[in-house]
């Protein structure tokens, strides 16, 4: 039997002595599309950042593809889509250059890009509908197009697991549709998805399981809950700030 793609066992995460996640256990098996839902500050983003090793666990353990996170090295199997492009870089970069970073996990640091790398980048750009913008600087793109660039970057590495942090927050309808299309192609190819969302929108039919995080614990694990109350209203404002950031450092962008 193949091990689960993600296993979190009694995970605890704290920032500055304050527990953000308390005793969370979660298992995701191959082919599942799991949405992590929850209010602002519920700990849902922290959960996926802990899964990826971006925030340390105070207690408990995380396994990826059956390997403890500490010893996990097969990062090529994972595609990560952050909520947005980093604080911003001072030098222009084209969409194609950003997407090409997605090949590094597969290629390694020293080997120069080959034909397979270029083909994978072009394919990922087509999958998100940005092939015609490949040569444009990312900073000139709309928020939704920038989000699609980040998804293309993750897809270019041809991962088995996609981890997405609020991929549809503040994204225009056209980009949401393009994004849902790219994601359903990925799922049809046997991929596993773990995504954090505030609302599901056009992604809803793709989701096989929902996990609701509330006050640092898992409040629901199973069928996708129906939108209720003001969340169901079409004009509900979904723009909101994110969880606590890591302290800014001298060398970080």
């Amino acid at each position: 039997m193949t091990p689960p793609v993600i296993t979190v066992t009694h995970g605890v995460v704290g920032y500055d002595g304050r527990a953000v996640l308390r005793d969370v256990s979660l298992s995701v098996t191959a082919g599942e599309v799991v949405a992590v839902l929850g209010a602002n500050g519920s700990g849902k983003s922290t959960l996926i950042r802990a899964v990826l090793g971006l925030v340390p666990l105070a207690a408990g353990s995380v396994e990826l593809f059956g390997t403890p996170l500490r010893r996990f090295r097969q990062w090529r199997r994972i595609g990560y889509v952050p909520q947005r492009l980093g604080a911003g870089s001072g030098v222009p970069a084209t969409v194609r250059e950003v997407v090409a970073s997605g090949r590094l996990a597969r290629r390694g640091v020293l080997r120069p890009p080959g034909r397979a790398d270029r083909e994978a980048v072009e394919e990922a750009l087509r999958a998100v509908g940005l092939a015609d913008r490949a040569g444009d600087p990312v900073a000139t793109l709309s928020g939704g197009q920038q989000q699609r660039t980040l998804i293309a970057r993750a897809l270019a590495g041809r991962p088995e697991l996609l981890v997405l942090d609020e991929p549809t927050a503040g994204v225009d309808a056209a980009s949401q549709e393009a994004f849902a299309g790219a994601l359903s192609d990925f799922v049809a190819g046997g991929g596993t998805v773990l995504l954090v969302a505030h609302e599901l929108g056009p992604l809803r039919p793709l989701i096989s399981r929902a996990v609701v995080v509330h006050q640092g614990g898992i409040a629901h694990d199973g069928a996708v809950p129906e939108p209720a109350g003001h969340h169901a209203e079409p004009d509900h404002d979904h723009v909101h700030p994110h969880g606590p950031d890591e302290p800014a450092g001298l060398w970080s962008s």
Binding site: S101, L104, V163
Partner: peptide, 22 residues
């Protein structure tokens, strides 16, 4: 020679960590 890797680290350090870059 290290341009792709250094670009990735300077552009988005968290992504570079998840990509397994040193």
């Amino acid at each position: 020679a290290l341009r792709p890797a250094l670009f990735a680290v300077c552009h988005d350090e968290e992504y570079a960590r998840v990509a397994g870059l040193p």
